[in-house]
Nucleic acid binder design. Sequence first.
DNA 1: AGGGCGATGTTAGAGTCGTCAACATGTCCG
DNA 2: CGGACATGTTGACGACTCTAACATCGCCCT
Lengths: 199, 199
Amino acid sequence: MSDGDRTRTSYHHGALRRALLDGARDLLAERGAAAFSLSELARRVGVSTAAPYRHFTDKDALLDALAEEGYMAFHAGLEAAARAAAGPGDRIVRLGVVYLRFAEETPALFEIMFRDRPGRPSGPATFELLVTAVGQAQDAGALRSGQPPVVLARTIWALLHGLAILVGQGGFGKLGIDEPRERLVAESMAAFLRVRPEV
Amino acid sequence: MSDGDRTRTSYHHGALRRALLDGARDLLAERGAAAFSLSELARRVGVSTAAPYRHFTDKDALLDALAEEGYMAFHAGLEAAARAAAGPGDRIVRLGVVYLRFAEETPALFEIMFRDRPGRPSGPATFELLVTAVGQAQDAGALRSGQPPVVLARTIWALLHGLAILVGQGGFGKLGIDEPRERLVAESMAAFLRVRPEV
DNA sequence: AGGGCGATGTTAGAGTCGTCAACATGTCCG
DNA sequence: CGGACATGTTGACGACTCTAACATCGCCCT
């Protein structure tokens, strides 16, 4: 058999690093970021509690690696949405929807990604994507102009981030707010949009 | 001596609950929310590690109580800012500045307050405050109208929350964004404001 | 006044977790 | 084929949360 299998051939696992990251994603989703335990992860994957330290210096290092993968998926999702958009105005809304959906579907991963860890490299690339989309939408007259793309993009980013968090952790549910994502995004960005997309 | 002192008169402390909450605020600010330890808190206050359980069922219960106090201070700060405002338009900006400042000055407390805990009562009252201010500003022509106050207030809340988090944890520092709060808030809310406040 | 009782402390300990050191085992290269 | 290096395991340490059993204090009640 090939040694990428889940059943360790014997003493050595063969692909422990990958198995740990995959298992961590699941465990994180089940338990939440706060209750995530490295010991439990090791138990699940079927190795000793010391084994992960051969691949990650730290619990935080593992979480950082997971966040990094999350960033890639996030970025890819945004890029796909940008490509699939009908036009510059539609693109902005679609990016927002993807942003919200990501935070909603994998809240714990989202939390890990944006937690305060010094030296996190990613982010700027994704921000650039938004800046570009904003610039295009401004040129096309679909988005409010008068501010440089960077400023407007930063505002939209903050708005989406706030929405993501408040929606994601039910902060809005208590306020009696509950509507489909597209509508929520479009309504929230109404002040920026020149043409209202059909919702 | 009165028995509200910091030096326990003898066996009993006298005002342990208060001392724990006060100590927790400091410890939280020093260590951050993730590294906050109930044992260390007990050590600092000068009692055994089991003592806090006479006043709080749980570590989370203590943190919740602290968050509750935080909410009150937050709410009071917003109310004071609302009162001190020159007019409806200025009021909105001031509320935003207070929001940001609070998140920036006590980031760990802010994190505790908005973490996902079911059954957190507060929040709606504070949200109402914002809704009212938005409604007034709309009536005065200082704020974009066309949407019900609740919708616009929700959007502004999300925007502020996103800004608070991104600014607070340096997510913007990496992107080369660094400006005074008033300017940041005014710039971010430019799309909602009918008249630009002097910054 | 005295006695008891509830509130509020303490000590001791169980169970979990993160992490490390020392040892075992498998792989692969010279 | 033999040894070095990567990757596992065992065992242990210290810190943490939380509980149970015991100690002490203040206060109320007759």
